[in-house]
Design a protein around this nucleic acid. Sequence first.
DNA 1: ATATAATTAGAACGAACGTTCAATTTAAGA
DNA 2: TCTTAAATTGAACGTTCGTTCTAATTATAT
Lengths: 195, 195
Amino acid sequence: MNKRRYNSETAKQEIMEKAFLLFSQKGYTQTSVSDISKASGYSKGHIYYHFENKEKLFVLLAQQTMKEWYIKWMNKDNEFTCAAEKLYGMAMHVLYHYQTPLLKGGQELASNPESSPESVKQLYELAVIPMGAYRAILVQGIEEGEFKKGNVEEWTVLIGTWLGGLCQLTNTQDPYSLEPLFKKAVSMFLESIQK
Amino acid sequence: MNKRRYNSETAKQEIMEKAFLLFSQKGYTQTSVSDISKASGYSKGHIYYHFENKEKLFVLLAQQTMKEWYIKWMNKDNEFTCAAEKLYGMAMHVLYHYQTPLLKGGQELASNPESSPESVKQLYELAVIPMGAYRAILVQGIEEGEFKKGNVEEWTVLIGTWLGGLCQLTNTQDPYSLEPLFKKAVSMFLESIQK
DNA sequence: ATATAATTAGAACGAACGTTCAATTTAAGA
DNA sequence: TCTTAAATTGAACGTTCGTTCTAATTATAT
């Protein structure tokens, strides 16, 4: 059962890969279905065979991207000996795996009044994922007596916006050269919350 | 001299005001010249009488916006008694006057390969302005012995990205409710750089 | 009053967009 | 081998876009 008689799944995958690259490079609006068609080698009609429309395709990619980011993080979550170390690890994970360019297209789509409310809602829900990961680290640090008792929600937003802001720099600089900056941000943040 | 026989300057001003609002609300690509025409009450042809094209119009608005932001800051720059106070003042200035929504359109335009290189260059130059303002505060703090001697360039980028990241929140929350968050960010930052 | 130049409008352009659809090819099950 | 449904194509549709152009209107200078 569930054995496909045909294998158009590879085609679907190729379309998604090319679409991911194009959306990341040119943003949502500026990437046309024709672009995706040309890049993937499949006809426009075939893209609509696999995906309901351009909007749904993008949302799917954004969700998949965020999910992969989270899974990758959970896989190394227990490599760290303390909450402070984990925060440094998170900074590196954000720097190297948070797909800023693609996710920027999400803002574009969400701020367009003609986008379907459903898609907008789904995109906003994505932002919850990284915030949850940050919060978990802070809670752990407090519970284990490593961090002060403080306003966890506020701290979560603060480290989240800082890392998010730093991520914008990946548009113009390569990740490796940004490592010291990300680490410095974490160390400054820790100075304020560590006991 | 310089006395205009006609007064189409008011028309130009009205077009710019409406264009500013639309670009802020819907971004660059999603704002059409027709939108601006309808909102301003002037014909499409008339818009092209005043502005070479849509791209140039946007760049002009972005430049004007950033220039106003800087002038407003310089006007209150000397209201503060020390560098730390000035940093808090800057955070509030950013929160209330940095036109995040419009400037986001700049990223959109800059990341589009079909945009004229000249426009892209002009937009990148805008980012230099706030960074210069941050740096000036940090230098003052160091020179007056209020802050430690440290890597000024690094600090500049760090406070810049943090405030920039926080600004993204203005998309979903009103500025007033964000005041405590901005202030907390500054106080945490100061903890690390104050003597 | 007339000439002139600045100002404004609105129709028209070709190109590009997202989407649909009928037609064709492909591969599996009987 | 024949049938059937999946897979894929490419042309076509109706819009919308940024831009151009011509024509009309307006205000000023003479």
